[in-house]
């Protein structure tokens, strides 16, 4: 067995998880003959022993009192309004803002539609352009008769007049 095999098996070896007696014997033998791996094993063992010998830290004197206060506050807030969590409040605010925006948008659109309804009718475009070829009067208004005499009128056989 080489050092890389030893290191690969080491955790199982240390935790007593190796069930194959042959592997166990090989690992033990390698640890005895290899100085590097023996040093490694010594460092882990001694280091962990020192770590375990460290004094445990104790909860501070006010730990239980603070915990009771925090638990009471948690129970109280849960009893008062179980749905009033920060996420719930944020979601409710977002929905409310979205509702207000939709309402505002709807009112604004309605207002602009009313303004558009008050506009005058679009001008009527006359099919055969003559002077004036665009009328800005409404369709009900009497249209002035226009008499245009083309230049060709002086010639015999030409149209006499074009009326609207």
């Amino acid at each position: 067995m080489g050092c890389s095999d030893f290191l690969a098996w080491y955790s199982d070896f240390r935790d007593g998880l190796i069930t194959d007696p042959g592997v166990l014997v090989e690992l033990e033998r390698h640890r005895r003959v290899c100085r590097r791996c023996a040093r490694y094993h010594h460092a882990v063992s001694r280091g962990v022993d020192a770590l375990r010998a460290l004094d445990d830290i104790e909860p501070s004197p006010g730990f239980r009192r603070e915990l009771r206060a925090r638990l009471a506050a948690a129970v109280l807030s849960a009893g008062r309004n179980p749905t009033l969590t920060p996420a719930g409040v944020a979601a409710a605010v977002l929905v409310a803002v979205a509702g207000v925006l939709l309402l505002y948008e709807g009112l604004a659109a309605r207002g602009s539609a009313e303004v558009a309804g008050e506009r005058r009718a679009m001008p009527i475009v006359v099919a055969n352009p003559s002077v004036p070829f665009v009328s800005f009067t409404g369709s009900d208004a009497p249209r002035p008769a226009t008499l245009v005499v083309p230049a060709s009128a002086s010639h015999p056989g030409a149209d006499a007049a074009i009326s609207p």
Binding site: R39, Y40, A43, V44, G47
Partner: peptide
């Protein structure tokens, strides 16, 4: 992870 942790731990303190 445990194997690597032990390895690193040994490297630091050895």
């Amino acid at each position: 992870r445990l194997n690597r942790a032990r390895n690193r731990f040994a490297q630091v303190i050895a």
